[in-house]
Design a protein around this nucleic acid. Structure first.
Lengths: 274, 274
DNA sequence: GAGTCGCGTCCCATGAGGTGGGACGCATCC
DNA sequence: GGATGCGTCCCACCTCATGGGACGCGACTC
């Protein structure tokens, strides 16, 4: 009866668990705290942190430790974010210049979006988003834009999963969300009316790759009483289309099932680099 | 005779070696290529990459693999870059606005600087620097600014180490470099006259923390015939001083040995928060 | 079409090394 | 002084990483 103590061990899993135990807010953390967060024996955490520090992935200041700079270096080499960010940055600055609002660039990972770059504005609202941070895809503008152009299995997984609410206006009804995604596919623009946070609205558009696959999304966000989503939508849409084109996209954005998709080749946007 | 085959194994070291084998330029890499770069047996690399993919640190597209988005997420949580970057960004945009040149933010790691943030300009030169990339500290403006305010042992290690040349004007004479660092301590500004790359000049100033310890450096770079380093120096110096003040620095920047240094507490800039 | 090369994958006997409960010293707090 | 938390270290057990080699595959060459 019952799982035999979870056979799911392996050294690497524990190491990653320790690294993942560091939260975005905290700087230095003690070994005991890490043991508590990971559920690993104190002794094991101690040994792992010592080993990680030897490799430079962790920095030890006496007995307190924090994530090492080497992790930042490696993280900046991740193609999914680097290629997209490098290509998108000029368009993002244009977008901020034109709209005077906060500009977001995000990609999808599972049921969530990961923010790759954010260009803020001096007087803008404090967004719940952080570079490298995650938010439920269904409750954000960028997330809905990506989901609308994702392969059916991906979209279905989100619709069938748990739809958490970020604010009282978050759309958490699967049917309603599915219908909204259809509308986004038709317009090429997704809206967020205070669904990700109080007082924050947003317009977003998908960024498509060479084979019509969605790579991420751009968005413009601002205070509900200082920005009209429909007003900035053309700018966001245009910027996303232009960015898609520089990334090699040829067709007009359509339903993923339409068009001549060469799915076998995958993203293969490897050689774009410097 | 000679080293007995390097007893220096350990699983973790190999795992980190595999992750480090990914270069900034390349997107997807094969297992055989990784084995070649790391010097590890093909069989070992295969097993490690499979394990890494299970943890999400690597993404496998068929048989090709690339660094996973999770590494980017973790990398963005590294305090050394996050706290500094968040605090510096406003000053950096001001600096770019005022000078219309490329602005750099970097920290020291060993004998090299790691670039934390770069604000480029449309018409500016292509710099050898990349966010998350490394360059020899002694051959860059930011590097010399940091070294000038670093603890003696750190500076000595660089002076005694190998001083590689990035260009024909790189300062690679230890004595000359030491004298230049003394001048930087006096002025609060470091210059780079085509020492890091052809046609590129730069002015840099150190960013100091609460206890007078150097956290990093700001710089402004541009074409040698379109920017006068001495002209932008006051702006860079001012921005660095202002940034240092927001980070809790109280005294005027002096030689690290001067002033009431409370070194025991270390950086401890943990709680500055999100 | 036979040969060759490089690739990713898988197997398996060996032993290196990760495991974790527990002990220890040390601070801090009541 | 007792209690609680911390980081560190030890050591007998046994899991699991090791890497040489075999295999199938596709892409070339002669």
């Amino acid at each position: 009866m019952g799982m035999p103590e979870i056979p799911d061990d392996s050294y690497l899993r524990r190491v990653v668990a320790v690294l993942g135990a560091f939260r975005a807010e905290d700087g230095e953390v003690g070994a005991a705290e890490l043991a508590r967060r990971t559920g690993l024996p104190k002794s094991t955490v101690h040994r792992i942190t010592v080993a990680l520090a030897e490799e430079g992935l962790l920095e030890r200041q006496g007995s307190a430790m924090r994530l090492g700079l080497r992790l930042f270096e490696i993280g900046q080499r991740v193609p999914r974010q680097r290629v997209l960010r490098d290509a998108a940055l000029p368009y993002m600055t244009d977008l901020r210049e034109a709209t005077r609002q906060t500009v977001h660039l995000a990609v999808l990972e599972g049921n969530e979006v990961v923010y790759v770059e954010i260009l803020g504005t001096p007087g803008g609202p404090v967004m719940p988003s952080r570079v490298g941070g995650r938010l439920p895809a269904h409750a954000t503008g960028v997330g809905k834009a990506i989901l609308a152009y994702s392969p059916p299995p991906v979209t279905r997984a989100v619709l069938d999963g748990e739809l958490a609410r970020l604010s009282e206006r978050s759309v958490i009804a699967p049917g309603l969300l599915a219908r909204e995604l259809a509308g986004i596919r038709r317009d090429g623009v997704a809206y967020d009316y205070e669904e990700s946070g109080r007082g924050i609205v947003c317009a977003a558009s998908p960024v498509l790759g060479p084979d019509g696959e969605v790579l991420g999304a751009l968005s413009v966000s601002g205070w509900v009483n200082r920005m009209r989503p429909a007003g900035v939508a053309p700018a966001v849409h245009t910027a996303a289309l232009a960015l898609s084109r520089t990334l090699g996209h040829r067709d007009r954005p359509r339903t993923p099932s339409t068009g001549h998709v060469r799915a076998e080749r995958g993203l293969q946007m490897a050689g774009i680099g410097p």
